Simulated assay, not measured.
Amino acid sequence: MLPDNLGTFLSVLWEGVPETVIATVGGIALTIVASFVAGLALLSPSRTVRVISRIYVEGLRGTSEVVQLFWLFFALPILVGFQIVPLWGGIIVLGLNHGAYGAEIVRGSVQSVPRAQYEGAIALSLSPAARMRRVILPQAIVEMIPPFNNLFIQLLKSSSLLSFVFVNEVTRQGQAVLVPLFTAQSFTILLLVLLIYLVLALIITAVMRLLERMASTRLGRRPSEQARRKRVTGAV
């Protein structure tokens, strides 16, 4: 039997979906940029570039995402006298934090391309930039997609942390708005919150699988069995 207040619950939670989607999509976009910049920098022949990228990767991965969020909203304004908009600040934290993890995905995927591909590109007299753009990255991207799928879903779940800085996303709508009013039905409210995240995660997975098929088709091959296993075991 459905709860009497189910319509109210869904209506209030739905008001938080746009904020969650904006934070997730914005965070994913920044994650992709940060991942490729830092990941390729880790492979740079310049030691200085590698060291700077490594500091970013280890610094962001080795510190708490919640503390990063609090530092941006409560400490940084004291230092610079400027308060960033909570939602956009959340996107910055989500993107830079997950970009640090994504950098290792990019680095590992590029290094996984067989050495013969590099040698063939050199034999064709391609410049280093052309080798990377036309030969290495197209193959590496196919390998990146399954772990990026997992990373993006993790980013989606991390978007719930924005409730700490008063962004009215799904978790805050459920925990701060509905639960205090309908304490006896907390189980139902939080179950609905979980289901919303599950649906959004499935959408991300569907999009990433489509992208993987398209990238594989461009290379004239099917997604590897190993990639399929990664998707099944780590998608959610």
Rank of each mutant, 00 (worst) to 15 (best):
Met208Thr: 08
Ser186Ile: 11
Trp71Ser: 02
Ala201His: 06
Asn97Leu: 05
Pro138Ala: 14
Tyr197Thr: 05
Pro3Trp: 06
Thr188Ile: 12
Ala29Asp: 08
Ser64His: 04
Leu151Pro: 01
Gln226Leu: 14
Gln139Met: 13
Arg61Glu: 06
Ile196Pro: 00
Gly102Tyr: 07
Phe182Cys: 10
Leu198Phe: 15
Lys157Asn: 04
Tyr56Asp: 00
Asn5Cys: 05
Thr183Gln: 08
Leu13Gln: 05
Phe152Asn: 00
Tyr118Met: 09
Ala129Val: 13
Thr217Gly: 13
Asn149Tyr: 05
Gly16Leu: 06
Leu30Thr: 07
Ile189Met: 06
Ile32Lys: 10
Arg229Glu: 14
Leu60Glu: 00
Leu76Ser: 04
Leu200Trp: 03
Val85Arg: 11
Ser163Leu: 09
Gln117Trp: 10
Arg209Glu: 13
Gln68Ile: 02
Met144Cys: 13
Asn150Ala: 15
Phe148His: 07
Val142Lys: 03
Gln83Ala: 09
Ile22Trp: 13
Pro128Phe: 06
Glu225Lys: 09
Leu94Val: 03
Arg172Lys: 06
Phe9Asp: 00
Val179Ser: 01
Arg218Asp: 05
Pro180Lys: 15
Pro223Leu: 08
Leu76Ala: 07
Arg221Pro: 00
Ser46Gln: 07
Leu202His: 09
Val177Phe: 14
Ser186His: 09
Thr205Cys: 13
Arg50Cys: 15
Ile92Pro: 04
Leu161His: 01
Leu155Asn: 02
Ser159Asp: 01
Leu202Ile: 13
Ser163Asp: 01
Pro18Phe: 14
Ser158Asn: 13
Ala29Arg: 12
Val179Glu: 01
Ser109Met: 08
Ser127Ala: 12
Leu137Val: 10
Ala29His: 08
Met214His: 14
Leu155Trp: 03
Gly90Met: 07
Ser125Gly: 08
Val106Asn: 03
Gly26Ser: 10
Ile141Cys: 07
Ala75Gly: 01
Asp4Gln: 13
Thr183Ala: 12
Val66Glu: 01
Ala201Thr: 02
Ile204His: 03
Ile28Cys: 04
Thr188Tyr: 11
Ser224Met: 12
Thr183Gly: 08
Glu169Arg: 04
Asp4Leu: 14
Arg209Phe: 08
Ala140Ile: 09
Gln83Phe: 04
Val66Gln: 02
Arg172Ala: 07
Val177Arg: 02
Ser44His: 13
Val12Ala: 09
Ser64Lys: 02
